[in-house]
Amino acid sequence: MGVVIAEHVRKIYRAGETEVEALRGVSFEIAAASFVSFVGPSGSGKTTLLNLIGCLDTPSAGRLTVCGTDVSTLGRSAGAGFRGQEIGFIFQDFNLLPVLTVYENVEYPLLMVRKTPEAQRRERVLRLLDAVGMLEQKDKYPDQISGGQKQRVAVARALVTEPKLVLADEPTANLDHATAALVIALMKRMRDQFRTTFVFSTHDPRIVGEAEIIHTLEDGELTGSTSQGGANG
């Protein structure tokens, strides 16, 4: 069974009497431990789709199942609980908390969301920081590290709770090409190491090819899916 199953998912935004259909009945399935990219021009519905998968928003119609749960009707608290348990997020602007060190940023979901015991927390955070190559920078604050390093910390933060699914909305948009390639490679390596499903959106043609499965969105419709045959296991 897929980690994400979308069946005729629609999303309509209303502003006064104006209706904008951001997603027009998309259907797809994402298998466990796959490395999937949604591509398409700005306004094609990539971010909307990732928000729906990430339970940050609810579909207007259709059925969306994430990690075995129908997320179409999750409330605010239930949604927060579900995200904390099942999903990791990587943001375009890294979104590290500026008052926390690198170590504390990665520790945050375990401490404030999962309430993991100290010893277990420490072991996992150090392991993740080591895996993303940020162990030596663990006591630095976000404003003391580079953009690429910030995104590596964000990857570690997304993975520290051992989620089944990691969502990354334009994770390389604010990085130069070399750093972007490194971050994508890191995400792939993490997928291989932790068997986590990675779903990211991008409109950067330089990294599109890094995905193993590419879904193309145009005007809210899924216009094509390509498998590039990468190893996902």
Binding site: S77, A80, I87, F91, P98
Partner: peptide, 16 residues
């Protein structure tokens, strides 16, 4: 606001 959005997105309960 963005920080609140971030911590809410990664699952911080509203009460926290």
């Amino acid at each position: 606001v963005r920080e609140i959005g971030t911590i809410a997105a990664i699952g911080t309960p509203p009460a926290t």
